[in-house]
Design a binder for these strands. Structure first.
Lengths: 259, 259
DNA sequence: GCCTAGGTCCCGTAC
DNA sequence: GTACGGGGCCTAGGC
């Protein structure tokens, strides 16, 4: 729980005050929220310029930086975790520099007004669990291979071959090799091409027949056309149904399967 | 600028207080920041569960919702813009529901403690511009010379001549010499004079016709006047397009490998 | 370090 | 509306 000493909330703080508190926050790896009027420069893989306006800036304890406008999911400027932070004063403005290597990038935020500065030591050990992801579908198919077809026997998953990673491969009831590409959304042309890439490679490499099956909740018309012309197959698989299968088999872990 | 009436900052507010203020904020499309201890459920394309922990929640005026942990660029849970918001009380907890159609999704946030509630009417008309660097533009033109004109063939770049470095020079489809000066922002008179300097030098040095082309996203009126009087040319080149050409080229090289 | 691939991707754009 | 591609994508995992 937050002690009062772990919380700083300042309304309309002076620039000098903000700078002092920020540098302390950076040192002690606190999470910081700044609301105020600012402009932002970015230089790195591209360059950008954002003119003055009122925004929310979040600086996290791992050094990630987010500049949020009043609309939209995405930050207008940002820096991923691991950047070096610096707060300084120039021309009566608060300047926050966030610098990163690899790729070498800099975000510089110029505040001419700060309405709110707040600094926290956030304690967050809560576990995050995601269900009905592609990984869930993969695990469900390994547990219940009839989701693909009767007689399908998986041999391995996430297998690295020359062009990339094969989601699942195995053999069908007639002993033919089967490559399965899984998508958790409506499969598009790209997904078909991905599958085709693996099938093509394995056909050449093994000099034997290889079936390619795209497993997804749906497939777009164009993707289906492409799929058929490439003599690949589609199998409708529902991510939620996969999740239900996993719930039934909760104890078994993915790695147990092949032991 | 923020009037005091446009700003609400409450430290350790009561749940009832938060609910009242939130519903008003939702109605009046304010931007809201809540810091406190919460858990989060998500149901939609997938499902997720996040256990209790201290987090930052941002609710924007367009109905987008972000739940941020103390680390990382990405929100742990979110809702893109256009969702319906609701704040209510249950079991002494503050519940915020954000519901969206197409796809049908719900994020529910349960707060058992609120440390900070702040509500703003953010005024932000600042223009955002994304640029490629001048070097990026140069590389894009070398890869795709038709950005200058049909039939242009670059010969060299960053070539040192008496007055300085020529960005790119080459020949046009008629075999005439072409000097290209690149600017990543609206070109001004200085840019025109820089180009004129190179062209002048080469005309004298080589005793042959030399075309001068200024490549930039835009040109100022005065600079254009000067350009025309000096019988130089302007070619509009979009930095974003350059950036895309570079990206595509990078991808193409990788995918070529598998063809 | 590079490369591969997924994402509740989001977002714009073309059809 | 659906489909497709791009992103400063970010992030995780393998080599």
């Amino acid at each position: 729980m937050q002690d009062s000493e772990h919380i700083i909330i300042c309304e309309n703080p002076s620039i000098n005050d903000v700078i002092a508190k920020l540098n302390e926050a950076f040192n002690e790896r606190r999470t910081t929220i700044i609301v105020g009027s600012c402009r932002v420069d970015y230089h790195g893989r591209a360059s950008s310029k954002l003119e003055y306006g009122e925004r929310i800036v979040i600086i996290k304890e791992d050094g990630s930086v987010l500049v949020h406008r009043s609309k939209g999911y995405e930050p207008v400027n940002w820096q991923p975790s691991g950047c070096v932070l610096q707060a300084l004063k120039d021309n009566d403005e608060l300047i926050i520099k966030a610098t990163k290597r690899n790729p070498s990038e800099t975000v510089t935020i110029f505040f001419d007004r700060v309405y709110l500065l707040s600094i926290f030591k956030l304690i967050d050990e809560g576990k995050f669990s995601l269900y009905a992801s592609e990984e869930d579908m993969q695990r469900a198919i390994l547990i219940e291979p009839t989701l693909i077809e009767e007689g399908f026997k998986p041999i391995d998953y996430e297998r690295k071959v020359e062009p990339g990673f094969i989601d699942i491969y195995g053999v069908d009831k007639n002993g033919r090799m089967v490559v399965v590409e899984i998508k958790r959304r409506t499969a598009n042309k790209e997904a078909v091409l991905q599958l085709a890439k693996y099938v093509e490679y394995l056909r050449k490499d093994l000099s034997r027949e290889v079936r390619g099956i795209l497993a997804a909740p749906d497939i777009s018309r164009e993707a289906n056309h492409l799929l058929l012309s490439l003599k690949l197959e589609f199998r409708r698989v529902d991510p939620k149904k996969c999740f239900k299968i996993l719930k039934k088999n909760r104890v078994r872990k993915i790695t147990d399967f092949f032991k």
